[in-house]
């Protein structure tokens, strides 16, 4: 197996890694770096469980080859602070049930709120439209994102 050298910044830390040429970004994260917060659902870009932020944009890490991520900046769920507003809003609003979709949902929400602190409900639903949840439904997730937006704007979230 031929190895390819890549440099990548993940959650603020620089890595220099040798990767197999057909390795996917999700495998690099989960299997090599043990960043197992990123989940694999469908492996075909349909479910969004493997969502990470790459170069400021959400992508399905199952549809990126690790060598393509050379020289890029990546944020995974492990890069979200413990006291993060979005994370806490998800907990408070009951937006987490089995939790499998949650890392992807939180990152999709972060990607939206990084650009837009005053999203409409439609914009929130659009932002998470590539992330499937099979437990709670989407209402509580949407409420959580609304609450996080309000808190980030400086309101009390109610």
């Amino acid at each position: 197996m031929i190895l390819k050298k890549i440099e990548v910044n993940i959650n603020g830390r620089d890595y220099c890694l040798d990767v197999e040429e057909n390795l996917r970004l999700i495998d690099l994260l989960r299997d090599k770096l043990k960043l197992t917060g990123t989940k694999e659902g469908c492996g075909e870009g349909e479910c969004g469980a493997c969502t990470v932020i790459m170069g400021g944009k959400i992508v399905n890490s199952c549809l990126v080859l690790a060598f393509q991520a050379d020289k890029s900046r990546i944020i995974t769920i492990e890069g979200i602070e413990e006291d993060d507003v979005i994370k806490n809003s998800f907990i408070e609003e009951g937006a987490v049930q089995c939790g499998f979709c949650t890392p992807g949902m939180v990152l999709a929400a972060k990607s939206l709120l990084d650009k837009n602190l005053n999203p409409t409900e439609e914009e929130i639903r659009e932002a998470i439209s590539g992330n499937l949840c099979r437990c709670t439904g989407y209402n509580k997730i949407v409420s959580a994102v609304k609450k996080a937006a309000k808190l980030k704007r400086g309101g009390d979230g109610e």
Binding site: N22, G43, E44, G45, L63, V64, L65, Q68, S72
Partner: peptide
């Protein structure tokens, strides 16, 4: 390979088996 949103799935299913992948995404 650019976005890879179709090609990576095809490679994993064995429908495509290229000797080389040339990445133009960046």
């Amino acid at each position: 390979i650019a976005g890879g949103t179709d090609l990576i799935i095809k490679i994993r299913k064995g429908e495509e088996n290229p000797k080389a992948l040339i990445d133009i995404s960046s």
